[in-house]
Design a protein around this nucleic acid. Structure first.
Lengths: 200, 200
DNA sequence: GTCTATAGTTCGATAGAC
DNA sequence: GTCTATCGAACTATAGAC
């Protein structure tokens, strides 16, 4: 018995739709595509969900809730700024690994979906993420952990984009584990790619 | 007389369509949207272009040709590796500034469009970009300009993604000029955000 | 929970008048 | 170069049988 068979039909369909949305985009995936992949007809989908939007809504809202719960746990249990930055970034790469579909959908389609009233919470997602990171960077600059000649707003955008855009090429279960990607990313982000002669 | 009035009708329509494709995505923009924005009816568009795909094809193929011509000029005239990396990155941010629509379309819709035979050249774009960057990073590591403990493939993806994804928030003519973004980006990429105590 | 059948809409594209 | 008019395809969603 596979894991799939033990999940509810609704969860199966959510996973199937999530995979298609992530791969082709929300607008480029039809309800017939989803039904075909699930081995049923398109009309039957409406027994489980009342619209195509409801499917992506459930995927994204669940993901957002879980992600920020993880961030909150980290910030509550980690006082040191450098350790916080390290843990938040590692948790983000872990999310790319564990919830690849949802991250990909958010990256590719959030801009379009945010145009609808129903997905206003995606804006809240962006707002909270920004507040968290600008706070971390400000803390780091004041504590002496981070250099102070960078613009906090530009640096925040840089980190935000560079972490999540990895979903475009990262493949869960592939050759490179998420842990390795996080290690290399943190090395570049903290110390740069340039060789330092003055360390010795 | 505005600049728009001096351009050919075809170029006007290309610019209008480019703006809509960049803002909403190719699939989410209808030929009626484009015609409305141009003040004509949708059928009239087909006097200028034989399909919606032809419009985005012309935008992307022109952009790709110009971008690589710029890269080739830089590599021909700049022998030093560190200077090459600096100039290529500055040229990329300049492209985001000067050809914002095309970069946005490439970032958002290339994945979908590459599925069509007609847009196979977008794959060539990716291939050339990768070859160029892996070559630059390899040169830099062998010459001693760059640290050697980073994976060249991961570093290449990091740079590729982090440069182009800026198109999502950068606004030409806005508060922050492209030059400033490139300066800050190069600082982070080369030296990192961490404070170095051992410089003094 | 799935299927049959289809309504209602929107889309890309075409033909021919002006 | 634009408009009038429309075709045929594809899409989301619904109603009711099984």
């Amino acid at each position: 018995m596979t894991e799939t068979e033990t999940r509810s039909r609704r969860e199966q369909l959510l996973a199937i739709a999530g995979g298609l949305f992530a791969e082709r985009g929300f607008k480029n995936t039809t309800v017939r595509d989803i039904a075909d992949a699930a081995g049923i007809l398109s009309g039957s989908l409406y027994h489980h969900f009342d619209s195509k939007e409801s499917i992506v809504d459930e995927l994204l809202s669940t993901f957002q809730r879980d992600l920020f719960a993880t961030y909150d746990r980290i910030l509550e249990s980690t006082p040191d700024t450098a350790a916080r930055i390290d843990a938040i970034i590692r948790a983000s790469f872990d999310a790319i690994d564990q919830h690849h579909n949802e991250v990909a959908i958010f990256q590719n389609d959030a801009g379009f979906l945010m145009g609808f009233e129903r997905f206003a919470y995606l804006r809240e997602h962006n707002r909270r993420f920004r507040t968290m990171w600008v706070g971390l960077l400000d803390e780091g600059m004041r504590s002496g952990a981070l250099r102070t000649d960078l613009d906090p707003e530009l640096t925040y955008r840089f980190i935000r984009d560079t972490v999540w855009v990895a979903v475009r090429w990262y493949r869960p279960g592939g050759d490179v584990p998420a842990r390795t990607v996080a290690d290399q990313y943190l090395t570049i982000l903290l110390n740069g790619i340039s060789r330092k002669e003055d360390h010795a």
